[in-house]
Design a binder for these strands. Sequence first.
DNA 1: GCCAACGTTGGC
DNA 2: GCCAACGTTGGC
Length: 140
Amino acid sequence: MPRTWLVKQEPKKYSFEKLLAERRTVWDGVRNFQARNNLQAMRTGDAVLFYHSNAGEETGVVGLCRVTREASPDPTSDDPRWVVVELAAERRLDHLVSLARIKADPALAEIALIRQSRLSVMPLTKAEFDRIVKLSAKPG
DNA sequence: GCCAACGTTGGC
DNA sequence: GCCAACGTTGGC
């Protein structure tokens, strides 16, 4: 069964717009063991939400992508413990789902994004994933 | 730009 | 194995 994930990135470093333009990207540079473990657990076809961190008013979930290649060694590191996956852009969400909105939603209060604010790759339950996508259908 | 939270490193 | 120092992340 496909799993669902959320990845976080500062738009100044790599934005969802850029991923849309490039169609797909190698998700490199993860240097946290928990995030790495999550990358390794990703399977081709898994759905991934793209979150913009440190983006002022634009902080929140902005887009949908999909895993197109499973974990392989990170070419940007000499240390073989670090891995990358390949992500392909799927679509921009109709509306930003802001961090404030996620925090205010009882169904999302327990997600890692809130509880563990520094984790950059995290699993979501199907319910949490669907909830965020549902919220994106209407402006906050 | 500030600062709190948290992960990592290194001395002991 | 503890813990202080340090670096990084990310919300504000």
